[in-house]
Simulated scan of single mutants.
Amino acid sequence: MSLVRSAGLQKFRQCVEGLGGDADVYARRAGLPVEALDADELLVEDTALAAVMEIAAADLGCPDLGLRVGETQDFAMLGPLSVAMQHSPSVADALECTSRYMFVHARDFGVSVMDAPDGEHGVVGLRYSFGAGVRPLPQATDMTMLFFHRAVTFLLGGRYGLRSVDLPHQPVAPRSRYEDAFGARVRFGRGSALLRVPSSLLARPLDGVDDTVRRIALAFLSQQPREAGPVVTAKVRAVLDQSLGTGSTDLADVARLLAVHPRTLQRQLAAEGESYASVLDVVRRTRARTYLMTTDMPLAQVSDLLGFAGQAVLSRCAKRWWGRTPTELRREAR
């Protein structure tokens, strides 16, 4: 099991609902937090992401679901990594950047260049690896590889000489559907997932490069930790970030969204050295500071948005958090 950013599910809800399906139901069946369908930064298990794709495809009778999702995803979902790639001097530099910082989006996955796949001179393989011991499932693989192909197309402003595509699984949709999506021959049951391209492509320069923008994006990426933090704590915090002020922050409701029993969730948090109350307190403190220091929102409204019973509770918490009243904190900020 590895962790991936929920941005990888971009457009999944849109595609599923366009086919008449219920994306939330599929997420719960896959053990995936429902919030992951609408948030980019939530860390989720790669197995859950792959499972939700397979469950939805089977239930909807849509064998090309992965291709449909991959066709609609936006290159910008890679965030700062997409910026660094777009402003790299050449294709080779963009791939090197992707290889170095892919962990920001998928901890154990990666991109690399294979020399002369099948021993063919003048051809290289742009290989997407799924991590040691991972058995890639067809729908998620189709989605990922089509997004990879479209990302290269975007970087180069159009067709780039794709010779063929290798996929590790047998076709789950008609072969013609795959070849229409990729615009090239697709080979199945191969040892790796890769795009076979002319080796000369690597030296091709990219247009519109801004070195200053690239340096800023790389500086941000270089500060990202390679090891994931507490997984369950991150999931709970992401749900609370979405729910605070708009939905329920009760333990039972959050546990339901995460598809676990409340007691199980409490045990998982305890194993990471946290409690539900402590995570909620941190989310409220962060949100309270933002409201108090950057807005003129009345204190009663701030209290309501934080889910407090009254303004007096906000005042007590502010004293505990910062040793100041909300009014004093706001005055100091100004």
Rank of each mutant, 00 (worst) to 15 (best):
residue 159 R to C: 01
residue 264 T to Q: 08
residue 165 V to W: 02
residue 223 Q to E: 14
residue 199 S to C: 09
residue 232 V to M: 02
residue 184 A to V: 12
residue 238 A to F: 02
residue 209 V to R: 07
residue 263 R to K: 12
residue 168 P to D: 09
residue 223 Q to A: 11
residue 180 D to R: 08
residue 257 L to W: 04
residue 236 V to C: 02
residue 241 D to K: 07
residue 191 G to I: 13
residue 243 S to E: 12
residue 250 D to Y: 03
residue 178 Y to D: 15
residue 240 L to Q: 03
residue 246 T to V: 12
residue 233 T to L: 00
residue 233 T to W: 00
residue 259 A to R: 15
residue 155 L to T: 13
residue 248 S to K: 08
residue 185 R to C: 06
residue 185 R to H: 09
residue 232 V to G: 01
residue 160 Y to T: 13
residue 197 V to A: 07
residue 162 L to F: 04
residue 177 R to I: 08
residue 194 L to A: 10
residue 163 R to K: 11
residue 198 P to I: 14
residue 212 T to F: 00
residue 185 R to L: 06
residue 239 V to G: 04
residue 247 G to H: 06
residue 183 G to D: 14
residue 179 E to Q: 11
residue 245 G to K: 09
residue 264 T to N: 09
residue 214 R to P: 09
residue 189 G to T: 14
residue 227 E to T: 06
residue 147 F to K: 14
residue 189 G to L: 06
residue 244 L to N: 11
residue 165 V to P: 04
residue 158 G to T: 15
residue 191 G to S: 11
residue 188 F to I: 13
residue 222 S to Q: 11
residue 198 P to D: 02
residue 175 R to T: 15
residue 190 R to T: 15
residue 158 G to V: 09
residue 244 L to E: 10
residue 203 A to W: 05
residue 165 V to C: 01
residue 173 A to F: 06
residue 185 R to I: 08
residue 248 S to Y: 03
residue 216 I to A: 01
residue 239 V to L: 03
residue 155 L to C: 10
residue 256 R to M: 04
residue 156 L to Y: 04
residue 264 T to L: 03
residue 196 R to N: 13
residue 198 P to K: 00
residue 212 T to A: 01
residue 215 R to D: 09
residue 197 V to Q: 14
residue 171 P to L: 05
residue 170 Q to W: 05
residue 210 D to K: 07
residue 222 S to D: 15
residue 243 S to P: 05
residue 147 F to D: 13
residue 158 G to S: 10
residue 232 V to R: 00
residue 234 A to Q: 10
residue 226 R to Y: 07
